[in-house]
């Protein structure tokens, strides 16, 4: 026999819960408002997931897909280029995250300490600007600056300073495995640090001034105030930023794609660029293999999200999803 569910009212009396259909009808306005969102999510997020099945198929531009089971995954796991890309993805993403977060914190603290408001605002504007440049433009600019030919500005300086002999060829920064990663991180710092300071500056502006006044009374120096007041106040935000971004580490594509080349695949090729080449660099690509690699990437990304969610719960007391 079906039991009726009861709910407690604000006065403490129990009343029988209305049937679901009736509740929906009573709140139909909200449901109608929600409908476009639901449809959007289903069509744009869930419908494309149908493509996951092609990771188990040979699927080429021509002909019908043929079921091949786990063949693509087997191929993927024995392909050195895939594992190199996987390793690079983690290394580049995590290092980039740590470096840009660290740089953002340093710049934020520095900006927070600035007393001249005009200089502070000007500096903020200047360091925000690179964020609004597309990666394609950034890559073109740095390719010109770092060009190994006689027109490259950085190599020109190195020659002027005598660090490179005039007869010697310039350093091919973007095509040298030893240089590519440092350059990549530097460009990322230049482009994204300013934007990253926003959240830290917002946190800093919320620190109770009484804490600084108390520190002043105690005779704390500026560095001591930064160490014992500012940084502890930022700690929670830093962890939050790290955790939220850690979930996205598998998604790296554009910054690498515009800056890498075949000479530095060993240190630069990430999963997304590997998939891109497997899909678009040959006349008759097998989309099945690309999908399998993409699915693997999504699974790892999903696992990272769950790990970050747990970490967030522990650190912040609430999850990110």
């Amino acid at each position: 026999m079906k039991k009726n569910k009861h709910i407690m009212t604000s006065s403490g009396s129990a009343v029988r819960e209305k049937p679901l259909g009736l509740r929906i009808w009573n709140n139909r306005g909200y449901y109608i408002m929600f409908l476009p969102v639901l449809l959007f999510v289903l069509v744009m997020n869930y419908w494309p997931m149908l493509g996951i099945r092609y990771s188990f198929y040979d699927y080429k531009p021509v002909g019908r897909p043929t079921f091949v089971g786990l063949a693509h995954f087997q191929k993927m796991f024995v392909t050195p280029a895939f594992w190199a890309a996987f390793k690079n993805t983690l290394q580049l993403s995590i290092m980039r995250l740590l470096i840009t977060t660290f740089a953002s914190v340093i710049i934020s603290v520095f900006l927070n300490e600035m007393k001249n408001l005009f200089a502070k605002k000007t500096l903020q504007t200047v360091i925000y600007l690179p964020h609004f440049m597309s990666w394609a433009v950034v890559a073109s600019i740095f390719s010109l600056l770092l060009s190994p030919s006689s027109t490259g500005m950085v190599n020109g300086w190195l020659k002027d300073l005598g660090l490179i002999s005039r007869d010697q060829a310039g350093i091919y920064f973007l095509a040298d495995s030893r240089w590519w990663r440092p350059i990549f991180y530097t460009i990322n710092i230049w482009k994204e640090t300013g934007w990253g300071t926003i959240i830290f500056l917002a946190t800093l502006s919320g620190i109770n001034p009484e804490l600084y006044e108390a520190a002043d009374i105690d005779g704390a120096t500026r560095m001591q105030k930064i160490r014992y007041v500012t940084l502890p106040a930022l700690a929670n935000t830093i962890l939050t930023v790290l955790i939220l971004n850690l979930a996205k580490v598998m998604n790296m594509f554009e910054p690498v794609f515009v800056l890498y080349n075949n000479a530095v695949y060993d240190v630069s090729d990430v999963i997304s660029t590997y998939v891109y080449r497997q899909t678009f660099a040959i006349a008759l690509p097998n989309y099945g293999y690309s999908t399998a690699v993409g699915l693997f990437r999504s699974l790892v990304g999903g696992a990272l999200v769950l790990i970050c969610n747990q970490a967030s719960k522990k650190v912040r007391g609430r999850g990110i999803i």
Binding site: P148, Y172, A175, N262, A263
Partner: peptide
């Protein structure tokens, strides 16, 4: 003798 940018 080859422009180094030939690579890219």
């Amino acid at each position: 003798v080859i422009d180094p940018e030939t690579l890219t």
